[in-house]
Design a protein around this nucleic acid. Structure first.
Lengths: 107, 107
DNA sequence: GAAATCGTCAACCAGTTGGTTGAATAACGA
DNA sequence: TCGTTATTCAACCAACTGGTTGACGATTTC
C-alpha cells in the first residue's frame, strides 16, 4: 500500500509522464505515437512508460510488433482518496480539470 | 502550475513525508517533536520539512527558539483535482482515508 | 530472403535525493 | 555568563533519475 502510493506519486511528479497520461485519456496509443510529440529519444519515452506501468497507471499490450498503451485510471483512486482526505475539498470541478490538462500537453 | 504539481507529487512520493503530514493533521508541531518517532537524524527531518515547505504543503513559523510546523492542505487541492479528473471517482469515503492513514504512521 | 519498422536493452553520464556527521547559530534558563 | 535546547548548515556519500547512444530481437513488408 505504502509502496503503491510511493510509485504513483513519484510517477506523477514528472511533467513528461503527466503529459503522456493526458494523451492516453483520448485513446490508446502505440509507443512510437506516444513519443512523437516529445523532443526526446524513443528510449527515454520507453523508460517513462515502463515506470508508469510499474506504478499501475497504464497497461501495455503487444499486438504484432506494436505495443499499445492504455490508461488505467483506477491506480489513481487510492492516492486520490489519500489527498482528498487531507483537504476535504469540494467535489471536483470539471472545468478546473480541463484547464489543468490544457497547460500540460506537449508541443 | 506544472512546477507546483511537480513539487507536490514529488513531496508526496516519500513515506516519511506522508507520515509527517499525517501527524500534522492532528495538530501543529515543533520540528523536534516531528522528528521524535522517526529513526533518523534531526537534520534529515529538517530537510524533509524544507521540501514540504517549498511544495507549499506545510508552513513553518518560528516563535522563540521553536519552529512550528502547520499543515497547509490547500496545496493539495489542484493536484487532487488533477487526479480526480482522470478517474471520475465517487466522492471520498472517509473510512478509506482513515484506513490509509493508519498504515502510514511511524513507530 | 532482405530491408524496414517497433520497441527494448546495456552502458554511460550529469544532476538530484535521502541519508550521515560535525560545526554553527539562536534563544532560553539558571 | 554559561550551559542547554532547538534548528540549520556544510560537506560528504551511495543510490536513483532522466537523459543519451548504439546494438539488438521481433515482426512485417517487399
Amino acid at each position: 500500500m505504502t509502496i503503491r502510493l510511493d510509485l504513483v506519486f513519484a510517477a506523477l511528479s514528472d511533467p513528461t509522464r503527466r503529459a503522456i497520461l493526458t494523451m492516453l485519456l483520448e485513446d490508446d496509443m502505440a509507443v512510437t505515437d506516444v513519443a512523437e510529440p516529445f523532443d526526446m529519444s524513443l528510449a527515454a519515452i520507453s523508460k517513462h512508460l515502463g515506470l508508469l506501468t510499474r506504478a499501475g497507471l497504464i497497461s501495455q499490450e503487444k499486438r504484432g510488433r506494436v505495443k499499445w498503451c492504455k490508461l488505467e485510471p483506477d491506480a489513481m483512486r487510492e492516492p486520490s482518496v489519500w489527498m482528498q482526505g487531507f483537504g476535504q475539498f469540494e467535489p471536483v470541478n470539471l472545468d478546473d480539470f480541463e484547464r489543468f490538462l490544457a497547460a500540460e500537453l506537449p508541443g
